[in-house]
């Protein structure tokens, strides 16, 4: 087991290197630092001198991959690739283009993101599975038909409408919760209720449909027929046999996104002005802060790789048929 984890760890390394090279190509080779400087300083009246100053300020004044002027090992280290990309592997995110420490920002902002994403995931999972089980229980009837139609209709509405509509009705007309904002500690709950509810609601359509197909696949299997033949009632078979076996794909599906919860939800956080990583990323995109976007790309892929690893491990824990070798 430990051997396997170590091996997977080394397998993750080329993956992250690939991500790093890809972002490097996107950010530095497709467009040179000169282009970036011109973009940041405004298009029209930019002198060569101010571009050089900007580049020097942000450390973009080195050669891309190979520095012939430096001596010894500095030929490699005194380059943009080494300074800007290799540091990411050690989680040294460096300084954003506006001069803030990205690492500290991330540590501070990841908790509000988690406070929003984790309840959304858990409540959403419970609601989705409950409704899906109910639809399977009443399968073949008009209730299920109505449920399917409702699911497709809910799926067809853009999440933006859920957010705008929810904010308008619950916060503006009924005035039950504040429209947006965030606070530390327990007061945060007041601000988080609405986004969590909307998050759950906007995912219900696709979620219920997905879990329903999972359950339906399980319901047709032989062991369920045997259980029914033994004389168990429909609810008993559903809860004791179908749900338990369907938990395996459900669990592994959840585990893979667990680490990504830290990244937060982009639109949710920006609509409700929650100071998480999602709104951090959006702000960076809007102010065209390439350093932050690059750091978030790397962080996201690290978390994804961790999620894959956790999925593999959780498979062995819940399903004895799977062995890691």
């Amino acid at each position: 087991m430990i051997q396997y984890i170590i091996r997977r760890f080394f397998y993750a390394f080329p993956l992250l290197l690939g991500v790093n090279i890809l972002t490097f190509v996107l950010f530095f080779i497709v467009n040179s630092p000169d282009d970036m400087a011109r973009m940041q300083l405004g298009q029209k009246h930019v002198t060569e001198q101010s571009i050089a100053n900007w580049k020097q300020q942000h450390g973009y004044d080195r050669p891309l991959l190979w520095n012939p002027k430096a001596s010894g090992e500095e030929k490699v280290t005194q380059t943009i690739f080494y300074q800007k990309s290799v540091g990411l592997f050690l989680f040294r995110f460096g300084v954003s283009d506006s001069g803030r420490n990205i690492g500290a920002d991330i540590q501070e902002r990841m908790w509000p993101s988690l406070a929003l994403a984790l309840p959304t995931l858990i409540v959403g999972l419970l609601v989705d599975v409950t409704f899906a089980l109910m639809m399977v229980l009443f399968r073949g009837g008009t209730l299920e038909q109505a449920g399917i139609v409702l699911c497709v209709a809910l799926m067809s509405i853009s999440s933006l409408f859920y957010i705008i509509g929810g904010q308008f009705i619950v916060a503006k007309v009924l005035k039950l919760v504040p429209i947006s904002g965030y606070d530390d500690g327990l007061i945060a709950i007041k601000f988080l209720i609405l986004p969590v509810l909307i998050g759950v609601f906007s995912g219900v359509g696709s979620g219920v449909r997905w879990y329903r197909t999972l359950f339906l696949e399980e319901v047709e299997k032989d062991y369920v027929r045997t259980a029914r033949a033994k004389g168990l009632s429909e609810t008993q078979t559903l809860f004791r046999h179908v749900l338990r076996n369907a938990l395996i794909p459900i669990l592994t599906g959840v585990v893979v996104i667990l680490p990504l919860l830290f990244m937060g939800s982009l639109i949710m956080e920006s609509f409700f002005s929650i100071p998480g990583l999602g709104s951090y990323t959006i702000d960076a995109i809007n102010s065209q802060d390439f350093a932050i976007v690059r750091a978030m790309v790397f962080l996201g892929s690290v978390l994804y790789v961790v999620g894959l690893l956790l999925t593999d491990i959780s498979y062995t824990l819940v399903d004895p048929r799977v062995r890691l070798s």
């Binding site: 993956l15 991500v19 467009n31 282009d35 982009l266 690059r294 996201g300 994804y304 790789v305």
Partner: peptide, 22 residues
Amino acid sequence: TTLNSIPSVLLIAASILMVQVY
């Protein structure tokens, strides 16, 4: 797997920023 591991919104954002610069 490499492409998949990058959060797609961020990859799109990065590419669109580049297109804008271009």
